[in-house]
Design a protein around this nucleic acid. Structure first.
Lengths: 232, 232
DNA sequence: GCCCCGGCTTGCGCTGGCTCAACGTCCGTC
DNA sequence: GACGGACGTTGAGCCAGCGCAAGCCGGGGC
């Protein structure tokens, strides 16, 4: 397992434009690692010893309030860099990262960060882009929380999930990691009860199909409809 | 007004470590400009032609929902760079920026951005830091909206305002730009009615002192107390 | 001095979504 | 194959905060 194949990186954004040599160089510095479902990858406030590339799986970014409540800030789909504290001027991680399901990651020591930025053309631009889209997503969610009702927020959260990490099946699009009602409620600032009621209603209407730790969206368009005519 | 004094930049973060020569160079490329209160500095989606440094005043960052509702995403205090679309991998501005009161800014054409990053040591690091703290603030607000009640959110918003842009007076700390109940409601995802009721109650208790477009906090510690014992 | 308008206040009734509570169901373990 | 624990469902009641509506106040323009 020492020798990682170059094809791992040829199609992921920060590296996709690089020469074979450069990719080889980056890979030789990387440590691969597997995380079990629900295992913690790093914790808020911890010294940022590594930065990561998610090769396979989904990562859940969680923050805990002083009162002990959890909220899920973000899900990271495979193929993205994460834990890049250096890129946002920090030396510690800003939140917890947990494996939403079994994950395969590459890790690099943070001290290599500056070198990567200078050594690999496009690396920095790619990172800026990632940071920008995270900022954009947070802003969108801020607006949702401030202006939308629970029903719409849950619908939007589901749509985002299937867009980012959806797996298409003959029946519809399925969230491809185990997700509970509680998880959804922590993404949308509501309670598992309310989410459960919504899912039941949507299932009756044939919009979703869900079970234990599993959600499949049959009719994304009808969820979108919910979000648009929010006034009425 | 052509010749800007170097002391303008010697104490603001992105430039504070630079040599006199470097500062001179940056200043000679800048265009100074004044904006009236409530004037738009740039609009969401617009081509990002410039990046800005706020020399004096306060900038309000606003997003508008498809339904025409506004929410205030952020206030930028003087001494900060803003409108740096390039730093987050965008070519357009991500939100509206308006002068919360009369503002004095320096503007540079965006095409100079990359040059600044390479030319001025510490510039890039300083920007990362700014981006990071904005991300952090948005994450905090996300959590507040998701978990806190209106009363606590408004209290937290006020505390943030006086921390970032407060002016200390013998009577207490005053928000040093005109701010309406409506503005506060757009920052906290509530209605002006609820904010008004809260302000009235707090005024009765001697915690704040407020009037038309004006808010002064007499007892910040009592506001903080509100936020902590949120369970009870 | 008067008027008008933008901002602020306050009462009242309603309701979305939370809380509490009880129960059902699936799955892994021993 | 019985048990325990995690996950999900559903009902009932309640209340924080919203929407509506009416009125107040202060400052700027003429």
């Amino acid at each position: 397992m020492k020798y990682l194949d170059e094809s791992l990186l040829t199609h992921v954004p920060p590296f996709d434009g690089l020469s074979r040599r450069d990719i080889r160089e980056a890979l030789d510095l990387a440590v691969p690692r597997r995380f079990e479902a629900d295992e913690t990858i790093f914790a808020e406030g911890e010294e940022a010893a590594h930065f990561f590339l998610l090769l396979d799986g989904t990562v859940r970014v969680v923050r805990t309030t002083p009162q002990g409540e959890q909220i899920i800030a973000l899900h990271i789909p495979s193929g993205q860099l994460f834990g890049f504290a250096r890129a946002i001027g920090r030396t510690t991680y800003p939140a917890n990262a947990e494996a939403a399901r079994e994950c395969l990651v590459l890790m690099w020591p943070t001290r290599l960060w500056d070198g990567f930025c200078e050594r690999f053309p496009g690396f920095r631009a790619s990172i800026s882009h990632t940071v920008g889209s995270r900022l954009g997503e947070m802003q969108d969610r801020l607006i949702e929380l401030a202006t939308q009702r629970v029903e719409q927020r849950v619908a939007l959260a589901l749509l985002r999930l299937i867009e980012q990490t959806g797996r298409t099946t003959p029946e519809g699009i399925e969230v491809d990691f185990p997700i509970t009602r509680q998880d959804l409620s922590e993404m949308t600032g509501t309670t598992l009860h309310t989410v459960s009621r919504l899912m039941s209603a949507w299932q009756r209407d044939g919009i979703v199909e869900s079970g234990r730790r599993r959600i499949m969206v049959r009719a994304p368009d009808r969820l979108e409809a919910f979000c648009e005519n929010s006034g009425t």
